[in-house]
Amino acid sequence: MKKILFIFLMTVLTSANSVAQEKLTWHTDMNKAFEIASKENKILLLFFTGSDWCGWCIRLQNEVLKTSDFEKWAKDNVVLVELDFPRKTQQEATIKSQNSQMQKMFQVRGYPTVYFAKPEKTAEGKKNLNTLGSTGYVRGGAEKWLEVANNIVKNN
């Protein structure tokens, strides 16, 4: 009986560990995310957020971006990039500058804003982002938000 209990316990711990290892990676370095998306032939999901002050951003995180439905969808479809504009949390100067550049490039005027973009390299080796569409907070949780996201992603 002790052997069975031990084996059961080890199985549970091993599967819990593998689930924990499968958590999503939110990149903060656009260059790295661009390279990964290009290599894996995936779309970039660019999440413009005010993580420590924006109520709608926090709602989007809790109702969609931290759900298992979103995790499953994201692993198959996108490379995640968080472009954060916190008020209380300190950021590295390079990240702050990069996020500001991206905000200007995509003309983001409010938070949360989520852009979907396909990474492309030109013949000269320059990097381009082909914008597919954008969304923000969508009422109805992960299911409704993913409907909107799928409509944008499928049209690429």
Rank of each mutant, 00 (worst) to 15 (best):
K2C: 00
K2P: 00
I4N: 06
F8V: 07
M10R: 00
M10E: 00
N17F: 07
S18P: 00
V19Q: 10
Q21E: 08
E22N: 11
E22S: 14
E22A: 14
T28R: 15
D29T: 09
D29F: 05
M30S: 11
K32V: 12
A33E: 13
F34S: 08
A37N: 07
K39M: 05
N41A: 02
N41T: 02
L44K: 10
L44W: 08
L44D: 06
L46P: 00
G50K: 09
S51Y: 07
G55F: 08
L60W: 13
L60F: 06
Q61G: 14
N62K: 15
N62Q: 15
E63D: 15
V64D: 15
K66D: 14
D69M: 10
E71T: 13
E71Y: 10
K72A: 14
L80Q: 09
L80E: 11
E82A: 15
F85G: 12
R87V: 05
T89V: 12
T89A: 11
Q91H: 09
E92T: 04
E92M: 05
E92P: 02
T94Y: 07
Q98Y: 03
Q98S: 09
N99R: 09
M102C: 07
M102L: 15
F106Q: 04
Q107T: 07
R109N: 14
Y111V: 09
V114T: 15
Y115S: 06
Y115C: 09
F116I: 01
K118C: 03
K118P: 02
A123F: 04
K126P: 00
K126I: 00
K126V: 01
K126W: 01
N130E: 14
N130G: 05
L132Y: 04
S134P: 02
S134H: 02
T135A: 12
G136I: 06
G136F: 11
Y137H: 11
V138Y: 08
R139Y: 12
R139L: 11
E143W: 05
L146P: 05
E147K: 02
N150R: 02
I152M: 01
I152P: 01
K154E: 01
N156L: 01
